[in-house]
Design a protein around this nucleic acid. Structure first.
Lengths: 131, 131
DNA sequence: GTGGCTGCAAAATGTTTGCACGGAT
DNA sequence: ATCCGTGCAAACATTTTGCAGCCAC
């Protein structure tokens, strides 16, 4: 199937690229619809999936509540998330490509292909609000 | 608030403890309701949360689809999951308590409290089915 | 007897899908 | 002229919640 370039897809890409943090699908939807109120949320979901599949953006797996986030950085790196508000932050720590060779699945025939290292914590805002 | 011991809670605990793998809330519900058909799914959810909070079982964060799993092992260890069927397996790899001290959040004031290392792969069944 | 726990149904949440139509190629 | 992408609403999956009655304490 050939792939078409549409205004909605361009807007979705733009929104993720210009977002300072790690937007959820709903974040992206709200940004776009503030300017282009006719866009459908389903379209945003579909385009985020397409863009991630094409490698133009990166899908960041579910955090805490199971909400997917997106990332304009496309290189492999680790993330942290705030257990209070769900905010996602980049973590500086060298990416360990070898760790999957050291890991031993305790089940026969399970083959590891990749890994995900997630740090849980509390962001500044939530900590200050907490006391 | 004082905590009561109910038949439903005992059944929920039993189901998780005797489950060979890592059951979802629905797995637990189906097991219990096959014998005690009157139990409510909401009760299972509530009791799984209570038991995890009490440290009697362990909550295993969302995998792929964002479905929560439970674990009868209460010691810290890593997990892998099959990207095809969602099956969760234990991973043998020494738990690194120090890694959170090496990780540097790229945002001021974010304090890391714990980490989660998840391996993605394909289980034997899905691989054999795949070709 | 009190109030936490239960069952039920409804709501909430995040995401996907069916469908007819409009627009990119 | 195709037929992919869109908007809309409905469906989906998982989990939570409001409420009246029940039962463990």
């Amino acid at each position: 199937m050939e792939r078409r370039n549409t205004m909605q897809k361009a807007l979705t890409y733009e929104a993720v690229m210009s977002y300072p943090g790690h937007p959820s699908a709903d974040d992206v939807y709200r940004i776009i619809s503030s300017e282009h109120s006719s866009i459908s949320k389903a379209t945003v979901y579909r385009n985020l999936s397409l863009l991630a599949e094409e490698g133009k953006i990166r899908r960041v797996e579910s955090f805490g509540n199971g909400e997917v986030r997106y990332d304009h950085r496309t290189d492999k790196h680790y993330h942290g998330y705030c257990s209070k508000c769900g905010r996602v932050v980049d973590i500086r720590l060298s990416y360990d490509n070898e760790i999957i060779n050291k890991a031993l699945p305790m089940e026969d025939g399970f083959v590891i292909t990749s890994h995900e290292l997630i740090f849980e914590g509390i962001c500044k805002e939530c900590r200050e609000k907490g006391e």
